[in-house]
Design a protein around this nucleic acid. Structure first.
Length: 845
DNA sequence: GTGGTCACG
DNA sequence: ACGTACGTGACCACT
């Protein structure tokens, strides 16, 4: 027999501190559960034990001994984030059929001691899994202690222990009795540390032997004195350090053979915790749990006896309402018990263009399918992924099966390949009712759903790129990279990989002896901020910075973009509508929202995004939209006035905060005001502001206080927003978009502070995102309705870009500006700058 | 897969 | 005592 005995508390602790805090949408933390299970599964797979016991600490108010009362008294209480995961891990293990062992008045390691001794006595094989070195005293020929470490685990057999420590495992108790252990409140012998203790144990073996012989030994006088003074403490410490091996628990290994897992129960629990990857690892499907009482009780679902037949034109014209899916060129349509399928492009296009009301799960892709063939997708009414996103902007994806499990909708896995199709109707019905209850129906119907078509069109059209120009720029960059690289090697005296922060750190801070300003988890920080400060100390720094700039431009933009040019010579980015927590859209493959602009060299890239012959690019961007949103949301008179004056907002802010006429505001004052304005949007902190504008924290604090005193309503808005966020667990934008903030329920101060900043920032960033989305829809519809030869092609958060015919460019520019400025009646005017040009670079002037 | 770095709003 | 502003995505090195 082989037993795996696990120190549940120790492994859970290790998992908790080793993985960043994660939580589900209800704010239940899951990182320790996930880490624990990873460690657990790894060892189950490696060791294939016959029996498993997971031990947990359990202490009642009556301790088994007086000394125990103070024992571990100074150990910090478990943080709330970890404490709430403890019962969940136990529940999960129980559902998995794994035996949990707890014993009133005993700690987990006492239970491990007892079980491992039983194994030893019966010549059974025992593996003790723990993160705590104390348990190494349990090692013998039958007992191996597996020490779980962050990187790799150590399998401690008697030989391995001897190799590391130089004495037998059992003597670890004596070692601890001498050196003590502050985390366990074991005092040891005062003045004796690890080194001395280890030497003494190697020579004398046990403290009993040591105390018998030390007086006549050749130990130094000081050590002898320490031993003499600490004699009593040493004995008590040895007692405390000894793991109990006869705790009253079942020592029959047979008892710990796991029973059959409750798959449905596991599925239910992990679905509620949103731990889908773990579920997958356990080989259980999400739907297994949905038949019994789910977290959200599953609603009655009819049995569907699906009749499958090919889709025809006749059927299409008879459809009034349906749900459908379209993936990899395969269409499946559901109308009641009837399922129609087709892989015929013409049939699919006819279906998409029909008047039938449609519900699906990836509308944008289907709009693109139709557009790519010069056809339309008509009467699209619902998109399950979009609905899922509005209800929880933090999920990693919005697969039908997951959403069903999460919202207690029956998932038709019994219908095999049509499970998704048959499930989507009830799923959407459910999602719609929750969206309605949460007041987001208008957001869905007026903004998100119409936007799917706009984004599809933008992706479909794409932006024209000057391939030759990019290639030439790449050639230039490659030359510059080689040149700067050589200069760095010359400065360093040898070649190395400059792109490796580790190697660069060694060269700069060890070989060349430059002062290291900051550290990261894994070594010296070498980021631009640090290097900037060292620029005057050594020429290598400047060359490294240049190297970084050139390689970044080359690999991310030149090489990256060339790789994405489609056959039509254009770049078709993917806009992601269900990605960001705040409601912004994101762009990938390639990311068209982070094309360089801030440095002159980088901005050159924008010269290669062009309008084809006979056409123009029209670029319009909102000026200070987030600050204007803030002014509107809080209604502060002074701030509104500042915007109404039409003068530069940062100058205006400086004038108001420093209480002087605008004409007397210096560039320094304006720049400080600008930094404070940014800080206000992000959720201000004096330290970061000070760093940003290079002043003292005290001065930064004063700037903030003066600002908030001048703009009272801003202050008030921040406070009420944060208060409400604590109360509700979420914040909302002007158009009802929600973001849950589980960080606020963290007991970690840093984490909670971050939650507050999120609470302050999201309504502002999110409302700005709502506004530009509405503008996009209006622009799209007007261009279409008025038959203007211009199309939206890009959105960069506060900026929209059109490609227009030369003749319509001016008209389109006017329309664009008008729609953006008038998107919504605000307490301050929205201001838009618009330019036209042959390239993005020109149109952005 | 994660961390460091850096591009954008 | 600690670490430090919001939201993204891509690339590289390293485990």
């Amino acid at each position: 027999m082989k037993l795996l005995a696990i120190d549940g508390n120790s492994i859970l602790n290790r998992a908790f501190y080793g993985i960043k805090l994660l939580s589900n949408k209800n704010g239940v933390f899951t990182n320790a559960i996930s880490g624990f299970m990873n460690i657990y599964l790894k060892h189950i797979n490696n060791l294939a034990p016959d029996a498993v016991a997971v031990a947990f600490d359990l202490r009642s108010p009556t301790f088994r001994h007086k000394a125990v009362a103070s024992y571990k008294a100074n150990r910090k209480g478990m943080p709330e984030e970890l404490a709430q995961q403890l019962p969940l891990v136990k529940e999960l293990l129980t559902l998995m059929g794994v035996k949990i062992v707890e014993c009133e008045g005993y700690e987990a390691d006492d239970i491990l001691g007892t079980l491992s001794k039983a194994c030893s006595d019966n010549k059974d094989e025992c593996y003790v899994l723990t993160g705590d070195r104390d348990s190494l005293q349990l090692i013998d020929d039958n007992v191996t202690v597996v020490l779980a470490k962050t990187k790799e685990d150590i399998f401690y057999t008697p030989d391995r222990f001897m190799e590391d420590y130089g004495f037998e495992p059992i003597k670890l108790i004596d070692l601890k009795a001498l050196m003590g252990d502050s985390s366990d409140n074991i005092s040891g012998v005062a003045g004796i540390g690890e080194k001395t203790a280890s030497t003494l144990i190697k020579e004398y073996g046990t403290i009993e032997n040591l105390y018998e012989k030390y007086e006549d030994s050749d130990l130094t006088k000081s050590v002898k004195t320490k031993l003499a003074n600490g004699a009593e403490s040493a004995k008590e410490s040895k007692w405390l350090a000894t793991i109990i091996r006869n705790a009253p628990v079942d020592t029959d290994i047979q008892h710990y053979i796991p029973s059959a897992p409750d798959s449905a129960g596991i599925s239910r629990l992990l679905t509620e915790l949103e731990m889908f990857r773990l579920l997958e690892k356990l080989g259980i499907s999400v739907s297994e749990g949905s038949n019994s009482a789910a977290a959200e009780k599953e609603e009655e679902a009819p049995v569907i006896d699906a009749k499958v037949s090919p889709l025809t034109g006749e059927i299409i014209s008879g459809l009034a309402k349906c749900s459908y899916l379209l993936k990899d060129g395969k269409l499946s349509v559901r109308d009641g018990d009837n399922v129609y399928t087709s892989e015929d492009e013409a049939v699919i296009l006819d279906f998409l263009g029909s008047d039938c009301e449609k519900a699906t799960d990836d509308a944008k892709a289907h709009y693109r399918y139709a557009m790519a063939h010069g056809r339309e997708l008509k009467n699209l009414k619902d998109d399950a992924a979009i609905c899922g996103y509005l209800l929880n902007t933090s999920a990693s994806d919005y697969a039908i099966e997951k959403l069903c499990a999460e919202y207690g909708v029956h998932y038709y896995s019994e219908n095999g390949e049509f499970a998704d199709l048959l499930s989507i109707e009830l799923l959407i019905k459910k999602l719609r009712s929750v969206i309605d209850k949460e007041g987001m129906t208008e957001l869905l119907e007026k903004i998100e759903l119409p936007l799917t078509e706009v984004l599809a069109s933008m992706e479909d059209i794409g932006i024209c790129i000057d391939k030759q120009g990019v290639e030439d720029f790449g050639t230039y960059l490659t030359e510059m990279i080689e040149e700067t690289q050589q200069m760095v090697y010359d400065d360093a005296g040898h070649s190395f990989n400059i792109a490796s922060p580790k190697q660069l750190g060694t060269v700069l801070f060890e070989e060349m002896g430059l002062p290291a300003k900051k550290k990261t988890k894994s070594g010296y920080s070498t980021n631009a901020e640090v290097l900037e400060e060292l620029r005057n100390d050594a020429p290598i720094v400047d060359n490294v910075l240049k190297f970084r700039q050139y390689t970044k431009l080359n690999s991310t933009y030149v090489v990256g973009l060339l790789d994405k040019i489609a056959d039509d010579g254009r770049i078709h980015t993917w806009f992601r509508q269900t990605e960001t927590r705040t409601g912004r859209i994101s762009s990938t493959e390639p990311n068209m929202q982070n094309i360089p602009v801030r440095t002159e060299l980088g901005a050159q890239m924008r010269k290669f995004f062009v309008a084809p012959k006979g056409r123009k690019l029209v670029d319009a961007d909102y000026s200070q939209i987030e600050l204007r949103v803030m002014a509107h949301l809080c209604g502060d008179k002074n701030m509104i006035e500042a915007f109404n004056s039409g003068e530069d907002i940062h100058t205006s802010t400086a004038a108001q905060v420093f209480d002087m006429p605008s004409i007397m505001v210096t560039p320094e004052m304006r720049s400080a005001a600008k930094a404070v304005n940014f800080g206000i949007i992000y959720g201000i902190g004096a330290f970061s502001l000070a760093k940003d504008i290079g002043t003292s924290v005290a001065k930064a604090k004063k700037y903030i206080n003066d600002y908030l005193a001048k703009y009272e309503k801003v202050n008030e808005f921040m406070e009420t927003t944060v208060d409400n966020a604590f109360k509700d667990g979420y914040v909302t934008t002007m158009f009802g978009r929600k973001r849950r903030i589980p960080e606020l329920s963290s007991s970690n101060k840093m984490m909670q502070a971050a939650g507050k900043r999120i609470a302050m920032n999201t309504p502002v960033q999110g409302t700005a995102a709502d506004l530009i989305k509405i503008a996009m829809i209006n622009v799209y519809n007007r261009l279409k309705a008025e038959d203007i030869d211009a199309k939206l092609i890009l959105q960069v958060h506060d900026e929209l870009i059109l490609e227009a015919s030369e003749s319509d460019a001016e008209h389109a520019a006017q329309l664009l500006k008008e729609e953006m400025q008038n998107v919504y009646e605000m307490k301050v005017p929205l201001s838009v700058d618009v330019h036209t040009g042959d390239s993005w670079y020109e149109a952005k002037q």
